[in-house]
Design a binder for these strands. Structure first.
Length: 559
RNA sequence: UGACCCAUGGUGUAAUGGUAGCACUCCGGUUUUUGGUAUCGUCAGUCAAGGUUCGAGUCCUUGUGGGUCAACCA
């Protein structure tokens, strides 16, 4: 263990203070409480890493609790994907729980609250109720039903529960204060009638508890010490506390709600609604489209769990609105993959090179290191022959001396192979170059130890042997939007900023060792970037996704 | 014309009244059989004005700017 002191974030600070004030460490308990109504995204990852990270730091249990109180929007499919994503990120929950597990307990408590005169059944329309609610600057007015007798409320609530009323006709409301400065305290709804099938409780219930009524009580039932949510719930905290007050036993631990700022990323959108729009309008191929900021999208793109955890840790948390530069995320994945991804050669935009002094029909299998950063990664064999592909942009007939690549009359090193010199070009009737004719230095083979092999040439190119190369589809992804904060413009729709070039599909040639690659395997295509095998790959058709390009200081010089 | 939250380099975050630090980005040098990596370095910050204090990014006041709150959503 290093002794360097790591500064605490403000949530850890709160916990340390609670500990210092007598909270026993073994009382610490956290939870991650997603609603199963969509896929998790990188913003959720911040919350997951925060809560589970706290669990690890304090050796405390962390529950995975599905906040499933709205059967109209929730599905098992989402439950499954959320569990998969959390596990994939590398975390283990203590208990898998559901708010719907507490429906009976919540109902029983609601009856008690009615008996205590703290809740009433209202049969006004939602429009009427909205009108009575007032505004942030004007107090609300009491419902005409506010003073029903306990007996009447009990009878009505039972009828609600039994399905005797239509959807929307009755609600149970907490009786707090219609003039309260906090809108959420103006007699909030506890239950509404929803004659819907619930993914877990089926048709057992036709009344469903609202978020506020459910969340704090669930935390209390699970004895969550610190209930961490995002900033927009700050004003719900009064209600959270009020509801717990109604059932609180001083012998038990009292959960605290604390809020932090949600994590935003530049060049993307994070709201479920907008993400859904991208999916439904076919702008992306699905929730796991590699351009999506969803966990499943990042996974398919080639991101590692480690890189996402590092990103969350590095970005930190606070209470400020933020837009984190996606460059930080990209740095995290490049840093991880640089250490772990095997290097291979692939040519994305090929041009043919003929090595005229190389014997026709000859071939050699040359030794190439799998990862210069990791000796234990070992070596592999790559085939070399008379005709190879290199990248079009790696050749110019003439260029200034800043251009280290191949040009007429100049030498370059072919990675792990020979030094070649460009002698002439063959052009078609349009003047397009179809072949580059080179000669090679027969003594210059990489690693051969000869004097010629030690010669310094400025440029090193990647290549593939035409005869041995495998065709592959390469999907080159770029940022989905051209604007840092596409949804921050009040006058414009976020889709106005879609990047028309967010996907480019290429037919590329890759070295034959890639034949054995499996879905999600990650590689560095040398000099190009990091790529992973897409799930669309079949036995006869290899598909790669570009995760992220390598830093390219040459391209910057060229600008 | 309310209540609450927030304000530190371009970005994200530290500094718990005592030297404004770290990371990313940008820019430059060195190394390099990846124009990658590594490494060294440059640029760049406490929203404003008052106050308390020996000392204020931190505490107080007032402004300014941004955000949140009026779903039978979570």
């Amino acid at each position: 263990m290093s002794e360097e002191k790591k500064s605490l974030n403000f949530i850890e600070q709160i916990i340390e203070d609670d500990l210092a004030n007598g909270l026993a460490q073994d009382k610490l308990r956290f939870r991650f409480p997603p609603e199963p109504n969509g896929y998790l995204h990188i913003g959720h990852a911040a919350s997951i890493c925060l809560n589970f990270g706290l669990g690890l730091r304090y050796n405390a249990p962390v529950n995975l609790r599905f906040d499933d109180t709205n059967p109209a929007k929730e599905e098992q499919e989402y439950v499954d994907s959320i569990k998969h994503d959390v596990q994939w990120l590398g975390f283990t929950w203590d208990k898998e729980l559901y708010s719907s597990d507490y429906f009976q307990q919540l109902y029983d408590w609601a009856v008690e609250i009615i008996k205590n005169g703290k809740a009433y059944v209202d049969d006004q329309s939602s429009e009427e109720m909205a009108l009575q609610k007032g505004t942030p600057t004007e107090p609300g007015t009491d419902s005409k039903n506010r003073n029903r007798s306990v007996e009447e409320n009990l009878a009505l609530f039972l009828k609600m529960k039994n399905g005797d009323f239509e959807e929307g006709s009755h609600v149970l409301r907490a009786k707090i204060d219609m003039k309260h400065v906090n809108m959420h305290m103006r007699d909030p709804i506890m239950y509404r009638i929803l004659k819907r099938h619930h993914h877990r409780t089926g048709n057992d219930w036709c009344i469903y508890p609202m978020y506020d009524w459910t969340h704090g009580e669930s935390d209390y039932l699970e004895q969550i010490s610190h209930s961490i949510c995002t900033l927009e719930f700050k004003s719900h905290r009064d209600l959270y506390d009020w509801y717990i007050d109604q059932v609180y036993d001083p012998e038990k631990l009292r959960p605290k709600q604390r809020e932090f700022a949600r994590r935003n990323l530049s060049y993307t959108v994070m709201s479920k609604r907008k993400l859904l729009q991208l999916v439904e309008e076919g702008i992306v191929t699905g929730w796991d489209d590699p351009r999506m900021p969803t966990i499943s999208g990042l996974r398919r793109r080639g991101y590692t769990p480690e890189s996402i955890r590092t990103f969350s840790e590095t970005a930190g948390i606070s209470k400020r609105d933020n837009v984190t530069d996606v460059a930080l995320l990209e740095y995290c994945i490049k840093d991880d993959l640089n250490k772990t991804a095997p290097r291979v050669m692939a040519v994305l935009d090929p041009i043919k090179v003929v090595i005229t002094n190389y014997p026709e029909g000859n071939e050699e299998w040359l030794t190439a290191e799998n990862n210069q950063e990791d000796e234990s990664a070992g070596f592999r064999e790559v085939p070399f022959s008379r005709e190879i592909y290199i990248e079009k942009e790696d050749f110019r007939e003439e260029a200034n001396k800043k251009f280290f690549r191949l040009k007429l009359g100049n030498e370059v090193r072919l990675k792990n192979a020979y030094i070649i010199k460009a002698e002439s070009v063959v052009k078609d009737e349009n003047g397009e170059i179809t072949e580059i004719h080179c000669t090679y230095d027969t003594e210059s083979l990489s690693g051969s130890g000869t004097e010629a092999s030690q010669r310094k040439v400025k440029g090193t190119l990647h290549w593939v042997s035409i005869k041995h190369a495998i065709k592959a589809e390469v999907r080159v992804y770029d940022r989905l939007f051209t604007e840092e904060a596409p949804d921050s413009h009040k006058e414009k729709d976020f889709k106005d900023f879609l990047n028309p070039d967010s996907l480019t599909v290429l037919e590329a040639f890759v070295e034959p060792s890639l034949k054995e690659a499996n879905v999600l395997d990650r590689f560095q295509f040398q000099r190009l970037g990091y790529f992973c095998v897409d799930k669309d790959t079949t036995e006869f058709h290899l598909v790669f996704n570009r995760t992220v390009p390598l830093r390219d200081s040459w391209a910057k010089m060229e600008e």
